[in-house]
């Protein structure tokens, strides 16, 4: 947890000052959005909040709904 926050502080410090100096506002917004998503995901992981797996959804969609699958042994 503390570790996670420290890593994200470092990531923040590595990127943001440069972006502000260069006045790249569009980059900064994208960065911040991704940064917040990443941080929330990390937080969810450390707090053991279940994160839905996109592959399981796809598996359900493709194998069960569309019925495309290979026969099992």
């Amino acid at each position: 947890m503390i570790f996670l926050i420290m890593i994200y502080i470092v990531i923040f410090l590595l990127n943001v000052p440069g972006l502000i100096n260069r006045k790249e506002w569009r980059e900064l917004t994208v960065f911040l959005v991704l940064y917040i998503i990443a941080f929330i995901m990390g937080l969810m992981y450390t707090l053991d909040v279940p994160i839905p797996s996109p592959m399981e959804g796809l598996q359900y969609l493709i194998a069960e709904v569309l019925g495309i699958k290979y026969p099992k042994n």
Binding site: F3, M6, V10, L13, L14, P17
Partner: peptide
């Protein structure tokens, strides 16, 4: 200020490396 910034990042990095 930039130098101080870099110094600070480096210090934090070194600290993280301890772990």
């Amino acid at each position: 200020r930039k130098k101080i910034n870099i110094l600070a990042t480096e210090l934090i990095l070194c600290f993280l490396m301890l772990f």
